[in-house]
Design a protein around this nucleic acid. Structure first.
Lengths: 248, 248
DNA sequence: TATAAACTATGACGCCGCGTCAATGTCAAG
DNA sequence: CTTGACATTGACGCGGCGTCATAGTTTATA
């Protein structure tokens, strides 16, 4: 199914002018030009445009984006995973700014001694750029970044967010408990759960085809994850019950 | 204490060129020029620059920023509070993008049916701009926005974040338990706690001079907040114990 | 006290990522 | 067969600085 410029523009929430420009600089070329000169985009363009938007969101310049996603070894899946971490970095930065807001409010009320320097805490994008620098090297390359996936490597803000995500998934699953394990909505949640687990436990996530299996099999995992989220045992108990009663 | 350009630039994490430019367009003028032509900034410039950076962070244009903070009725405190909400909006948007990342990963793995439209969910800044539009009108005006401060008005992403903040404060307090209530660090945490409570319970926050008092007095509040954060009763118990043992 | 290093100033040009016209051609519906 | 929505290319311009260049001033060190 081919999209015209406006169709794609509306779908992706960008302007027609932007698509023209991306074509002009060779960043996103249409699948084909009609004999009238019209641009027609195919499915591949969707994913490519999505990548472009993600990178743009993370403050990459368009020529950088082009260089990255044109590399023959560019790996979309890996890129997406890196996007996620980088988005979390960005969110954590915003959290830092919120704290600066709070502290400034208290300073203005005279309730808090606050150094001049602290007034500007969180604005700096140094870490951000540092990360991007790494990312520029890493995107697309087959180089593995397992080190980032160890719990100890996350910042506390990231940890909070990750735990919150876990809780959300748990709530969602709880809300879908009645629907039966083979219900597509439930399957989606389970998939999100598998995805989520990658934060903690990479190597044998593939073993997680059966929900909770790892929790049952691996006392080490059980202990570690339970430390992060005290309600997790409950969750697993429920989930396993859920899984078993439905499967048998 | 007067800052030179570089001193201020380093402190705030902006470039000297930026300060020159802000002077040029009248956005941030130095307190005084030396006879050598040097710029010297005073304390007021710090807060003004901080405001500028906050607005810039929220994608306001410099001329808009100038118009806003030059208004005679510009209210820094109110602006800061609005900043906070807007920052949360931004963070929530990033959360949405993370979900799009997750879903795209699953789509690529074939584990999830996902419409083309969903590929671009979260990129749109419409809400963002809509909010900014409101903000432009509201910043500096004395108009009250209490409606935003009711729990029901928060998005679920915001709620998550607010709860996470509460948990963080609780952890911080727990870590400071030994230091005595009059310890400045503890007072800071208490102040953050008071600030935090404004999310839920605006009118009588002033009554919260004694920590936990409201929890003791108001069963309605007790019930409502406990629903949000199951561990809160513990916290209050600890906090009250802490407060009482130290006060008596 | 000489000199180097670090800071300051004021111009002026250039860049990116489009927005925003303008002029013109094409397609689908009534 | 008109009308309106859509398509094209081309050109100009903007915001927010980065990045020189040129030149004066202050501070540290030898």
């Amino acid at each position: 199914m081919a999209y015209t410029v406006k169709q794609l523009a509306d779908l992706a929430g960008v302007s027609v002018r932007t698509l023209h420009y991306y074509d002009e600089i060779g960043l996103l070329m249409p699948d084909a030009y009609g004999e009238n000169g019209y641009r027609y985009y195919d499915e591949d363009a969707l994913l490519r445009l999505q990548q472009i938007l993600f990178f743009r969101e993370l403050d990459f310049r368009l020529d950088e984006i082009k260089a990255i996603i044109d590399r023959p070894d560019f790996d979309v899946l890996r890129a997406l995973q890196t996007h996620r971490v980088t988005l979390e970095e960005k969110a954590a930065r915003l959290t830092g700014l919120m704290q600066t807001v709070d502290k400034t409010i208290l300073r203005l009320k005279g309730e808090l001694g606050m150094s001049d320097k602290e007034l500007f805490e969180g604005f700096d994008e140094e870490k951000q750029k540092q990360y991007a620098e790494e990312a520029r090297r890493r995107y697309g390359s087959a180089e593995v970044d397992d080190s980032m996936k160890r719990w100890g490597n996350y910042s506390s803000a990231q940890k909070q967010q990750i735990v919150a995500e876990g809780e959300q998934i748990r709530r969602d699953l709880a809300a879908s408990m009645g629907k039966g394990y083979d219900n597509p909505a439930v399957q989606q949640i389970v998939a999100r759960w598998h995805q989520h687990l990658r934060y903690f436990y990479e190597p044998s996530v593939e073993r997680l085809r059966g929900l909770g299996q790892l929790y049952v099999d691996d006392p080490d995992f059980r202990a570690n994850y339970a430390k992060l989220d005290p309600k997790l045992p409950e969750f697993f108990r429920d989930a396993i019950t859920f899984y078993c009663t439905d499967k048998t």
